[in-house]
Amino acid sequence: MLALFVGLLLLVSLFFNCLGVLSLYRFPDVYTRLHGATKCSTFGTIFAIFALLLYSFARFMAEGESRFLVLFIHVVIGGIVLLISNPTGAHALARAAYRAGILPEPAVVDALEEANKRKREAAA
């Protein structure tokens, strides 16, 4: 019974991780790839974390050994670290890519480029 739910959560996790990897090959430029990679790999790993939480909680309830509770607490902290660090890293990468001069290749509108142009004209 426990293995069924754990397996379902792991399947969802692997599905989204696969999509994250696939998006790196299917999308045309840096920014759209960043969308797919960040969102899908974070969401996929969070579901793996949910599976671990369910597993350790169920084992703790069944056997009462404190090491499963320790596993639970550590996995919760790992999840929080992941949830903070992953989107921040993605934001840093996007900003660095933009400042390194890589423009969004198919783009309908680019407000940042317009703002930068206005700033350059004001300085000149």
């Binding site: 991780n17 994250g20 790196l24 990679a37 974070t42 996995v75 790992g78 992941l82």
Partner: peptide
């Protein structure tokens, strides 16, 4: 970006 995704997956594997 690929490296960042690899890092996320490696930490998932470790967990």
């Amino acid at each position: 970006i690929a490296l960042d995704t690899v890092n996320t997956l490696v930490s998932g594997i470790m967990l």
